[in-house]
């Protein structure tokens, strides 16, 4: 027998399967962020924005664009992995992966690449939508912007994965996004600069991890940030490292997937 297992083909297969999944249900996955973000741009950008005036020296709509892109990227990466991996568990098709020679890191990477693909695609869609409302937008630092876009979707794909590992019901996959993730993002500087907050709230906000992601991205797109970029990037890398380690540990232990 000349059967040598090819890791790259296995990884490719899983990644393509993950991408096909969210493309197949594009009405649920790709359209809603485009619609919601258009509404944000119309209401907060075009209607209310002019009354708000400028934020950190930018038109309000311009200030909001990076925030809304991050909001979409975070929720979509997270949701993609949590719902896909949970339904693979739920339908028992996790057995197709476990029975195969794929090592655990390939399984994790396949799901994360699926989440990253969706996150990046959504980021691009929302950016295109924003150009409709603010055509003169230019990206100040494209390299940083793309780096943060990728890191953010990796980070939140990993979080979604951990959520799915522990989930035992469909309720469990919506509790964290609804009650933790969304509030933290909204309070993490998507709509405002923390400079407008009273001192106490500004200090509290500094403990919100979303603030670092949103601001690093804003630095890439607009060149302004409420936080130190090297520090923020360091934190993002550290979290990715810790979460990757945790995911692999859980997979090796078989938590939630092997009895």
């Amino acid at each position: 027998m000349n059967k040598n297992f090819s890791v790259s083909i296995a990884l490719w297969t899983l990644t393509v399967k993950e991408i096909r999944r969210f493309l197949r249900i594009w009405i649920q996955t790709l359209v809603p962020p485009a619609v919601t973000m258009s509404l944000y741009f119309v209401i907060f950008g075009s209607l209310i924005g002019p009354r708000i005036g400028s934020m950190d020296g930018f038109d309000y709509i311009q200030f909001m664009i990076p925030g809304l892109i991050m909001l979409s990227v975070i929720t979509n990466s997270y949701n993609n992995v949590v719902s896909s991996f949970y339904s693979v568990k739920f339908q028992k098709s996790i057995e197709e992966l476990l029975i195969s020679p794929m090592p655990n890191w390939v399984i994790l990477l396949g799901f994360v690449l699926g989440g990253v693909s969706r996150g990046v695609l959504i980021g691009f869609i929302v950016f295109c939508v924003s150009l409709i409302f603010y055509p003169e937008f230019t990206v100040v630092n494209p390299a940083l912007t793309i780096l943060v876009l990728l890191l953010t979707s990796i980070l939140f794909s990993l979080m979604g994965f951990i959520n799915a590992v522990f989930a035992d019901s469909f309720d469990d996959i919506s509790i964290i996004p609804t009650f933790i993730l969304t509030p933290l993002i909204y309070l993490g500087g998507v709509f405002y600069s923390i400079n407008i907050l009273p001192d106490m709230w500004r200090t509290i906000s500094m403990a919100n991890p979303m603030l670092y992601v949103v601001n690093t991205f804003r630095e890439g797109m607009l060149g302004v940030s409420d936080v130190s970029i090297p520090f923020a990037l360091g934190m993002i890398f550290a979290f990715i490292g810790i979460l990757t380690g945790s995911c692999l540990y859980l997979l090796n232990k078989g938590t939630g997937i092997r009895q």
Partner: peptide, 22 residues
């Protein structure tokens, strides 16, 4: 233990892919 929403052919070809078969 297969995904109910996929097509028969895709399910089997994907399983082959998990074994590293292009």
């Amino acid at each position: 233990n297969f995904s109910q929403f996929e097509k028969v052919m895709d399910i089997v070809v994907t399983q082959a892919g998990f074994y590293g078969i292009p």
